[in-house]
């Protein structure tokens, strides 16, 4: 068993990403485009079997609405910020842990630079009282409580 990251995003227009884009621009964060998807950290044997299992799980995945990928890297890529909710005190974590991945693009169409991602995280995408952020060069995923 090893840890995989399952990514599930919307095929249909993502109103939340659009709203985030408008809000970030209003805050003066220089982004051209925003994408968003859910990530689930899961333990599984192999990636193909995991893909099949998630694809048939109606609670997670609706093929007319979602796309689904199993990620190779367990770290945010360029332009990405991964936001993980902090567990409530005294609550056992479930087997799968959900986080939200944002991918920000600069006006040249390339992933936004690190400082832009940092600004977006600090100004809007993460409330440090209840969430922790990971992006290139910052942050490790929060430890699951023992």
């Amino acid at each position: 068993m090893s840890e995989f990251i399952v990514a599930i995003g919307l095929k249909i227009p993502d109103n939340t990403a659009q709203t985030a884009l408008v809000a970030l621009r209003r805050l003066g964060v220089a982004v051209e485009w925003v994408e968003r998807c859910d990530l689930w950290r899961v333990e599984a044997g192999d990636s193909a079997a995991l893909h099949a299992r998630v694809a048939s799980d109606e609670t997670l995945f609706n093929p007319s609405k979602h796309w689904l990928r199993i990620l190779d890297a367990a770290e945010p890529g360029p332009g990405e910020a991964w936001i993980t909710p902090l567990p409530a005190p005294g609550c056992a974590e479930g087997r799968a842990r959900r986080l939200v991945a944002w991918r920000l693009f600069a006006s040249d169409g390339r992933p936004a630079p690190r400082e832009t991602v940092a600004a977006a995280v600090e100004r809007l995408l993460c409330n440090p009282a209840i969430e922790c952020a990971q992006y290139q060069g910052k942050g490790a995923p929060p430890e699951a409580p023992k």
């Binding site: 249909i12 093929p63 007319s64 609405k65």
Partner: peptide, 14 residues
């Protein structure tokens, strides 16, 4: 079932 899922609409209560 999979084909039918496409016939179900996507709600937007907001």
């Amino acid at each position: 079932s999979d084909a039918n899922r496409g016939a179900v609409q996507v709600p937007d209560p907001f």
